[in-house]
Amino acid sequence: MSALLEVRGISKSFRGLRAVAAASFDVPERGVVALIGPNGAGKTTCFNMIAGVFAPDSGTIALRNSFIQELRPDQVCAAGIGRTFQIVKPFAGLSVLDNVMVGALLREQSVSAARGFSLSILEKLKLATKANLPAASLTLPDRKRLEVARALATRPRLLLLDEVMAGLRPTECDEMVAVFRELNRADGLTILLIEHVMRAVMALAQQVVVLHHGEIIARGAPAEVVRDPAVLECYLGEETEL
């Protein structure tokens, strides 16, 4: 059986600078894959190509065997990929519930159905008590949750998480991990995450792909990858939480 997401040889350069060079990897159905690497390795560029922010210079991206590399972000989302942003982008003037409803309206038939579905998601992410607060009033951990809730409201097959753990305290991080595990196990949600917090990567990912200078230098189970000399080499001198 083919993977849910197949990335084949995608490359991207900015003003002659190679950000990602011929990266290929798969995300299997119901799998959790982590994309790690030092700062500037090209992880977010990879994400942006998958999410349709810009098209790769070359290479293909397929979701369930149909190519998505030329689609716009909204089309990618409609195709079944939800994403969060590394720097959270809440709709600050709207309430927490309204934020999530914007996502839910993609697939729900009516506003009231979207409201009901959004409330159930807020419940899942422990934001239900804050549903009517303005998003601008949330703390950073709550904003990160909101970002996830909004993406989940679009009923994605694949969820792209861009450093959702950064800035969270260890207990908050563990809570988030538990939420994603549950989503993965119970709802069959497939997850691709960029993450620096290795605590979360080790706990969540079944497979890890390591990017360095835009190239994939290692892949495999988390426990193997962190012992890989090439991986240790590239992190050397880097400030990490490895």
């Binding site: 909204d74 809440p90 003037g93 309204d98 914007v102 309206l105 409201a153």
Partner: peptide, 21 residues
């Protein structure tokens, strides 16, 4: 109304939620 306000608040995030801005 929901989509417009989303676009007003943050167009990039709106688009990522499947809105054809």
């Amino acid at each position: 109304g929901y989509y417009w306000q989303a676009i007003r608040e943050n167009e990039e995030a709106a688009q990522a939620l499947g809105i054809n801005t």
